[in-house]
């Protein structure tokens, strides 16, 4: 059965791509024109071409969708659905938190580590991030996670900052150590 869905993932992607392309082309207007050899494309020419190509590709995807992809996705979904059906019937549907909580928690830890490492400092940031990630990936024993994350952090910190001269931020620890 072919139900022509108007809003499909491919169309949504097409829209996003189109918007990104438009934003990008819009931003080329902010490129200052400085010294310029006469008759030669300037700094905005290449980006404009890129933006147009991407915009057209996005528009194509938005208008046409991706029939091949959709069919494949439906087939995959159907197969997966059939496989899961018996299990799902027996057990009560899991709550959203149980189903997706870990997923978003992991993203929060990973991105949080990236964003706040410079302020938190490497030892605290990496230690905490690893502790939580070990836990999220299925290590239930806190003492194992804690010991492993402390040991790894210490080895990495000492190895990189003493051995290789990478200046890793101490962050909050800097205040504690009084330096």
């Amino acid at each position: 059965m072919v139900t022509a869905k108007i809003v499909t993932r491919a169309r949504a992607e097409g829209l996003v791509i189109l918007l990104v392309a438009l934003g990008y082309v819009w931003e080329t207007r902010n490129i200052p024109t400085l010294f310029q050899s006469p008759g030669v494309p300037g700094p905005a020419a290449f980006p404009t071409v890129l933006g147009l190509v991407l915009g057209l590709a996005g528009l194509w995807r938005l208008v046409r969708g991706a029939p091949g992809d959709e069919a494949a996705a439906r087939a995959a979904q159907k197969a997966a659905g059939e496989a899961k059906e018996p299990a799902a019937a027996g057990a009560p549907a899991p709550s959203w938190l149980a189903a997706h909580g870990r997923f978003y928690a992991l993203w929060a830890v990973v991105l949080g580590f990236m964003f706040f490492m410079p302020e938190l400092g490497f030892p605290l940031g990496a230690g905490a991030a690893m502790l939580l990630m070990f836990r999220l990936l299925g290590e239930k024993r806190w003492h194992v996670s804690a010991a492993l994350s402390i040991a790894t952090t210490a080895i990495l910190y000492l190895g990189f900052s003493k051995g290789l001269g990478v200046r890793l931020p101490l962050g909050l620890l800097q205040g504690l150590l009084g330096k």
Binding site: F115, A129, E139, L156, L168
Partner: peptide
Amino acid sequence: RYLMPIVLVICTVGVWSLSSSSVDL
């Protein structure tokens, strides 16, 4: 569950070692 978190932290050090920039992270 042990390998991947450690790998991720090492990658972060790699990025940081480029130019000590939080923008990069």
